[in-house]
């Protein structure tokens, strides 16, 4: 289940399939679920992830060496969706691995595995629209991205094609750097709300408890991804899950 509009902020976290390894992914996801995370992106690693910063680029590179692939992601999805019914899993991928697998076959397989949404950064709204009937039939929600420089007319079009949530790219650039959450950002959020009742997931630059506090009451979901992958990389999945747990606790205390 995706959150509804105006629900309290919750964290969406991340797994790059194959990073640091396929078995470790399963444990890491269990750790995240145990920490209270209710939204998790399963990222298919890709050789050329152009919307990602260095943390995720390097994680993709490692993941491909350790067996990460579309098939591995679908296999894992089947297990984690069954083991963690309280968590909503979202497939995140660049277009080519999905295209190569066969889009229709992929959508069916993803929905059958229990995946509920899909984020594909290099798949523009014009190309998604023809697939909407199929995706709606499968209950697979395309979560499209809006960026600070997206024209208003286009925001409306993206909002119409989005299901589940709208992914709000917080600032210009790629994943993994800092972001400012001032008045300009709030006006940007307010503009998107005019076009949609869907909950907003804010991503790119959510790295600290301060970022999360700043987003409380402004968005329903914060994509806490690169920082989590850095914890996982530097200190292992167990420590990363513990940090996530205390982060979620301190969010509740705010």
């Amino acid at each position: 289940m995706f959150p509804s509009q105006n629900e309290n902020l919750q964290i969406m976290s991340h797994a790059v399939i194959g990073f640091p390894g396929l078995e470790e992914n399963e444990k890491a996801i269990a750790g995240l679920a145990d920490a209270g995370v209710r939204l998790i992106e399963l990222q298919v690693p890709f050789s050329d992830p152009v919307a990602d910063g260095h943390t995720l680029v390097n994680a993709c590179y490692e993941a491909l060496k350790h067996g990460g692939s579309v098939r591995a992601t679908l296999d894992l999805a089947q297990r984690v969706c069954k083991n963690h019914p309280e968590v909503t899993f979202v497939l995140m991928s660049y277009l080519n691995p999905l295209y190569r697998y066969g889009l229709e076959k992929l959508f069916e397989a993803a929905a059958a595995a229990g995946i509920q949404g899909m984020i594909v950064p290099d798949w523009p709204v014009e190309e998604i629209e023809p697939w909407l009937p199929k995706l709606d039939e499968l209950g697979l929600a395309p979560i499209l991205m809006v960026t600070p420089n997206t024209a208003l007319q286009r925001v409306a079009r993206i909002a119409r094609a989005s299901r589940g949530m709208i992914y709000v790219v917080s600032r210009m650039g790629v994943t993994g750097h800092e972001t400012q959450w001032g008045e300009k950002f709030q006006r940007y959020i307010a503009e998107i709300r005019k076009h949609s009742d869907l909950p907003l997931a804010v991503g790119f630059g959510v790295r600290t408890i301060d970022d999360l506090s700043a987003l409380q009451g402004k968005a329903e979901v914060a994509a806490f991804c690169s920082q989590y992958i850095e914890w996982q990389r530097d200190d292992g999945s167990e420590v990363a899950a513990k940090r996530m747990k205390s982060l979620i606790k301190s969010m509740g205390a705010n």
Partner: peptide, 21 residues
């Protein structure tokens, strides 16, 4: 080369069965 979509466009790419360039 096999048809693929990457680096912003659709063309024939050298790639594996998983769509990795």
């Amino acid at each position: 080369g096999e048809t693929g979509i990457a680096q912003g466009y659709k063309t024939l790419f050298l790639q594996n069965d998983d769509g990795q360039l």
